[in-house]
Amino acid sequence: MVTDTIQEIIRRLHDVMDPEIPFLNVMEMGMVREVVQEGSTIVIRITPTYSGCPATDVIADDVLAAAKIIHPDSRTEIILSPAWTTDWIGEEARLKMAEHGIAPPTGQSADKAFLLGKDRITPCPLCKSTDTHMVSAFGSTACKAHFKCNACLEPFDHFKCI
């Protein structure tokens, strides 16, 4: 049952930002899977993006702090299944990424073309050129790859599909 308290908490969670992508909140990232009431406790279930993502603990702390303002008897739970996927990142969040110079994930997570280095087109978020290339599949954070635009020569991050 979605109570007023739960709705209030979900509204609050829209202000909890991902520390590594500070213009996106945890709801937009698709990291909060569930906010439910169990007895008198509110349980917020969070899915980490990458196994080793150092931001996960910080995010869980921030989510809990935000929830406790509304309902002191709250707790968070990390759930691994189903595994987080970039498919959960909403359309609006993808647009925001592009505005902030990060090429959003393109296509479906199951797309092997990117993984195998076959050039699926990742447009430059700065000049919009489609003439880009991957420098490295590993970028500034676990979730990003490092690209360079052949047209404007600027390097940029691409949010990897997983």
């Binding site: 990458y50 080793g52 150092p54 590993f138």
Partner: peptide
């Protein structure tokens, strides 16, 4: 960066 990223994934696992 790549090796450190891979290390991070492994330690997370």
């Amino acid at each position: 960066i790549a090796l450190s990223n891979i290390a991070l994934d492994l330690i997370g696992q």
